[in-house]
């Protein structure tokens, strides 16, 4: 396990290589886009709320592995280089092959959930990514919830926004992803899925205020 804690930070300092970027684009053009269009039939509401400039934070409820893939599929391929889905290292880097897969094709920003040091502190890792000009896709529930709906948000997102004030947050609510590919299953059922996006907002205030207003923003999209 010492393997993961060292891999979290060091290699991420390098800018993303062109070959890796092209491989990700090819994967999205040939697999993800056709899958989302013809199998899932993804619908998007509020696409105009996607910011045209980085960095920003895209925040959503989390019920399925489809969540990250479908959110990434909303963007033009050229922007994938700057989009970093924040992912738990203990799961998405559980071995070398999974790590290679998730880093190459999804450009994940791995964060440590268990043995946190000042070096691999998730807040620092995310803050560094934002100040380097990368945007984050973040699931503040911390893990995939069972079924559908919005769970309780972890405090990390509020701490991050206190450290990186002025970064706009786009709330998103994901519909039916948890029915298509719920936790513990590996073959998706082609339910129509939907992404609902809210207007970007810059948050200020105390930790509790930020957290409450973000939870409210995502919940409002669920009705």
């Amino acid at each position: 396990m010492s393997d993961t804690s060292t891999s979290v930070d060091a290699p991420r300092r390098k800018p993303r290589g062109t070959v890796t970027h092209v491989m990700q684009i090819a994967f999205f053009a040939l697999v993800v886009k056709p899958f989302m269009t013809f199998f899932i039939g993804l619908r998007v509401r509020g696409a105009e709320h996607l910011p045209s400039a980085d960095p920003f934070i895209l925040l959503a409820n989390h019920n399925s592995h489809l969540d990250t893939v479908s959110l990434l599929s909303l963007f033009p391929f050229s922007r994938l280089r700057r989009l970093r889905p924040v992912a738990a290292a203990d799961y998405f880097e559980r071995n070398r092959w999974v790590s290679l897969f998730t880093r190459t094709l999804f450009n994940i920003l791995p964060i440590e959930r268990k043995q946190i040091s000042s070096e691999n502190n998730p807040l620092r890792v995310m803050q560094d990514a934002l100040s380097a000009g990368d945007s984050l896709i973040l699931f503040p529930e911390g893990t995939r919830a069972a079924g559908e709906g919005v769970g309780h948000f972890q405090a990390g997102i509020a701490h991050l926004l206190l450290r990186a004030p002025g970064v706009p947050v786009v709330p998103a609510y994901l519909v039916n992803m948890g029915r298509s590919l719920p936790k513990g299953t590996f073959i998706p059922v082609p339910f129509f899925c939907e992404i609902r996006l809210g207007p970007p907002r810059v948050l200020q205030g105390t930790k509790q205020e930020i957290l409450a207003s973000l939870e409210k923003a995502v919940r409002e999209l669920s009705c």
Binding site: G41, G147, N176, R179, P182, T185, P190, F191, F192
Partner: peptide
Amino acid sequence: MKEYVTLLKTRPADHG
């Protein structure tokens, strides 16, 4: 079938 099933009230147990 996709349109129909999306509107059904399916159970998590129906996945398989």
